[in-house]
Structure formats: structure tokens, C-alpha cells
């Protein structure tokens, strides 16, 4: 012990101007080696430590004074607004799936966990997904699919997190599962028309500074 605490003397004296032992600008607190006999005997400090833990033990035992545990299924914390939960597929005004099977989300998905099989809708200008599955065990919850979607068809704001499953297959979310969480999108049905640029309020001509 004697060899170990030798350097601490110089350290202790260099910071003697600061009574709390704060040193430097970022507030690192330099704690010296145990120097006093009381600390080196170890026992009084042990008893003090036991006092701290015993205090917490009894306070938590009788009144849960310091207990911070959230008992999950009964108590739930509110998720932050931008929390990414299980995916959901949004609905059109008539209740059909908004997705047009454009394949942007499976393309961008870094985990390759989105499977879409498109089908004809009868409407010549549109497709829709016949199969839309996301393997939640492979999903890395990056949210890129939501970013990529051009028609607000897929979202992760369901507030539901991926449940524990017994079999891996059970973690695959099907189209029906995701549609059940879906709601009508606030985006204008069918877009605002091909001439949306012209319809924008005219802005002042760009005038570069000279």
C-alpha cells in the first residue's frame, strides 16, 4: 500500500487551492488514495458503505422510497413522439391499402426484411401489394422504409413494440397485421395532381446577392 499512495501526495498538494478537489475545466474530481489511517484500516469505511446500502434496503423495503422500477405490463411509460414501433400500413379514404407496391422500401431496407409481391388492381395505372411481409426479427428499426415511401403508406408510429415470440415465423408481420394498425392518411388522396408545381403560390424570383 505504501508504494501505491506515494504519488498521490503531490497530486493532493497541487490541487490544495480547491477545497472540493475539483481540478481542470471539465470538473474532474480527483480522489486521492486512501491516506488517513481511518480509511486505510478499511473497516470504518466498510461500515459506512454498509450503512448506505442498508438505508436504501430498508427505505425500499417499507415504502419503495427510492425504487425506480417500472412494472412493465401494468405500468407503461409513454413513448416519445418519434418512437419507432411496429410497422403499420396506412389506408386510403376507401379503406384499401395505400401502398402502390413501388418497391422503394424493400430496396432501401438495409436488413432486406421486407417482402412485397405486387398484383394488378384492375386500374391500369396502379399496383398494390398482394403480399407485404416484414420480418421484425431482422428489422433493424432504422426507419428508412418510412422515409423512402412516396405515398405515406408505411409508418412506424404505432407505439407498439415487437412482441416476444415462441417461433421465429411468428415474428413476421403480414399485410393484415399491419393494416389492422393502419389509419387513414392525412395526405391528399391521389395526390394534388400532376400540375402541383404550377399550383404552388408563386415565390419571389431568386435574387443572388451582388
Amino acid at each position: 500500500m505504501s508504494t501505491h499512495h506515494a504519488p498521490s501526495h503531490s497530486e493532493a498538494s497541487s490541487q490544495s487551492s480547491d477545497p472540493v478537489g475539483r481540478k481542470g475545466k471539465i470538473g474532474v474530481r480527483v480522489v486521492g488514495r486512501p491516506d488517513s489511517l481511518e480509511q486505510r484500516v478499511y473497516l470504518p469505511e466498510v461500515i459506512r458503505g454498509l450503512g448506505v446500502t442498508a438505508k436504501h434496503f430498508f427505505a425500499n423495503l417499507f415504502s419503495r422510497k427510492y425504487t425506480v422500477t417500472v412494472e412493465y405490463p401494468e405500468q407503461k411509460l409513454k413513448y416519445p413522439e418519434r418512437n419507432r414501433g411496429l410497422h403499420r400500413l396506412m389506408l386510403r379514404d376507401d379503406g384499401h391499402v395505400r401502398c402502390v407496391a413501388c418497391m422503394l422500401c424493400p430496396t432501401v431496407c438495409p436488413a432486406h426484411c421486407i417482402t412485397i409481391v405486387p398484383e394488378e388492381t384492375g386500374n391500369k395505372s396502379e399496383k398494390r401489394p398482394r403480399i407485404f411481409e416484414i420480418d421484425e426479427l431482422r428489422c433493424v428499426v432504422c426507419g428508412l422504409c418510412v422515409e423512402a415511401c412516396p405515398c405515406d403508406a408505411i409508418r412506424m408510429d404505432s407505439g407498439v413494440h415487437a412482441p416476444a415470440v415462441d417461433y421465429r415465423g411468428d415474428a413476421i408481420q403480414t399485410k393484415i397485421d399491419m393494416l389492422k394498425r393502419g389509419t387513414q392518411s392525412v395526405a391528399t388522396q391521389g395526390g394534388v395532381g400532376a400540375d402541383w408545381r404550377e399550383k404552388q403560390p408563386t415565390v419571389k424570383q431568386y435574387d443572388p446577392p451582388k
Binding site: T53, A54, H56, F57, N60, L61, Y66, T67, V68, T69, E71
Partner: peptide, 10 residues
């Protein structure tokens, strides 16, 4: 259980 109580858990 005791260690949890000492560490402010349940």
C-alpha cells in the same frame, strides 16, 4: 430480492 432493494430496483 435484497440486492434489488439495495440497488433501488424491485
Amino acid at each position: 430480492r435484497q440486492s434489488a432493494m439495495m440497488q433501488d430496483r424491485l
